[in-house]
Simulated scan of single mutants.
Amino acid sequence: MRSDLMSGLRLATPPSLASLAMSAAALVLGLAAAGCSSGTDEPRSARPTFSPPPITATPTPQSADGLALPLEAYFLTPDQNRTVARAQNMLISDCMRRFGFSYPVNASGGSDLSPVKEALRPLFLAESKAARWGYHATPERLAQINKGQETAAPKLSPAAQAVLRGTAKSHGGQDVPKGGCFGHGRDSIEAGAAKVKLPPWMKRADEDKPPAGAAPAMRSARAAPGYLPQSMLNGAFDLALADPRTKQADAGWSACMKQSGYNYASVDAILRDGRWAVSDAPTASEIATAVTDARCRVKVKYGGLMYALQLGYQKTMIDMYADSLNQVKQANEAMVRNATKVLSGNAAD
Rank of each mutant, 00 (worst) to 15 (best):
G8N: 08
P14T: 01
L17R: 13
L29Q: 08
G30F: 02
S45E: 09
R47T: 15
P48G: 13
P48H: 05
P54I: 09
T60R: 14
A64D: 14
D65M: 10
D65K: 12
Y74V: 02
F75S: 03
Q80A: 09
N81P: 00
S93Y: 02
D94L: 11
R98V: 09
G100V: 07
P104L: 05
A107I: 03
E127H: 10
T138E: 07
R141D: 06
A143R: 15
Q149L: 14
K169H: 09
H171I: 01
Q174M: 12
G180W: 02
C181M: 01
G183F: 00
A191F: 10
P199G: 09
P200V: 15
P210I: 00
A212G: 11
A217Q: 02
M218N: 13
A224H: 14
P229F: 03
S231V: 05
M232K: 00
L241T: 02
K247S: 06
W253G: 00
W253E: 05
C256P: 00
I270S: 12
W276Y: 10
A277T: 12
S285Y: 07
S285V: 11
T289D: 06
R297K: 10
G304M: 03
A308C: 06
L309Q: 02
M317R: 05
Y321P: 06
S324W: 06
L325K: 01
Q327M: 08
Q330T: 14
